[in-house]
Design a protein around this nucleic acid. Structure first.
Lengths: 230, 230
DNA sequence: AAGTGGTCTAGACCACATA
DNA sequence: ATGTGGTCTAGACCACTTC
């Protein structure tokens, strides 16, 4: 264990145990320098990591303080569907319904994807059962045009991941009742509760793709773990 | 703008523009030292920030490389309900239904909260309309017992936030149909699609609280923004 | 074997917030 | 006005990994 790591873990332990509470001041850098008999840069690096972990805040002239935990942020896992399903030990499948260029589409208006766009619709399968319905728009001015039969066998999400690096993404998650198409395609009761994940993806300010995935409420849930400093 | 900030933004710009693609090697530290005419620590700090941002990876002897973007992680905002609602310009309200000590409860089994626990049920209001239903267990062996009337006026979430710092949390998000209690209390159609957020919170390995919040699907959705490199 | 990034030292100057 | 953290220098040694 390095020295800066020891300093960091010493302080982290005092915070996690409750000996230091939110708002408390931790020792000044020069005090830690004396205490550990090291250079100031070493102390500073240890404290920097605690800042990065969200455990402390530092203020010039005032010192460093234990941060208030922020309950409202969590790391949400939105795994690649194929990976997720195969990790469960089930067979993953993809079935293409629609793949055509569109100039007008209800989602073009709301998604910010410019026309003309490639519209793709299909269903993800887990263990032979329909698992999620997907509707996607791909910006044709930004993405290199795939071969006509690309999405017959490969889900567009994985293809894009390997061909178009993204730089920004935005997610929206909500509950919706199953509409008619969903009811038929996923074999649900009418108006069954579904989890809908919408994702916008950009690359250097240019919209790349918009996707809406809808999961039956009883077949999928999102789990997020969070540790302030984990 | 500091020097390390300039180095960082120069490289970040080359990555975001696509000039440097995932897997590409970025200049060695000593090359950047020559290029910018600065100390190695300055270059190192700039690269460290890019690592922290998830934009690059560094390997001894090999160099530093542009990281593969990871689509599967996003920062999920789960704002404090009172703050969220007031930020919308609506009046926030809390109405307590139940507040009692329980030794047996269906959620005690699944939540990991040890008996005896404080069971709290109530409804959050936005602009006079019911906005979310909440069911919560609080571990009485870990949390200082609140006054009997504490939760008459203050939602337990905000009270806990200010009285019991947490160290770990886990979220689960799914879509559920509205049950009978929900239908009545939130004035919904039967079986309306609802977004259900469950949150477990621990402090130093000890369970603090478990809460299940249920939102009508048409009144709330979660939005998550993510940039690989913040 | 050689060269990389990781860690560390012992200084320095400065901007800034607070007292 | 003072003292803090923020930035920076010009070195050094080391562990690791790939060549």
């Amino acid at each position: 264990m390095t020295l800066q790591e020891r300093i960091r873990s010493d302080i982290e332990e005092r915070i996690r145990s409750g000996a230091l509470r939110p708002g408390d001041r931790i020792p000044f850098e020069h005090e830690l320098v004396t205490q550990y008999g090291c250079a100031r840069a070493t102390v500073s690096k240890a404290l920097e990591r605690l800042v990065h972990a969200g455990l402390i805040e530092r203020r010039r002239k005032a010192g460093s303080f234990v941060a208030q935990p922020k309950v409202h942020a969590a790391v949400l896992e939105v795994p690649d569907l194929a990976q997720l399903i195969e990790a469960r030990g089930e067979a993953y499948g993809w079935e293409l319904d629609t793949c055509r260029v569109v100039n007008r589409d209800p989602d073009i208006e709301v998604s910010g994807i410019p026309a003309p766009a490639l519209l793709i619709e299909g269903v993800h399968f887990a263990g032979g059962q329909p698992f999620a319905m997907e509707r996607r728009l791909i910006a044709l001015d930004t993405v290199p045009v795939p071969r006509a039969d690309t999405f017959e066998t490969e889900a567009p999400g994985s293809w894009l991941l390997h061909h178009v690096p993204w730089t920004d993404a935005r997610h929206r998650i909500r509950a919706v009742p199953a509409g008619r198409a969903l009811t038929q395609r996923l074999k649900l009761e009418p108006h069954a509760a579904c989890l809908q994940v919408e994702r916008w993806t950009w690359r250097t300010g240019r919209a790349v793709t918009f996707v809406r995935q809808t999961f039956p409420g009883d077949r999928y849930d999102l789990v997020a773990e969070f540790t302030p400093g984990g």
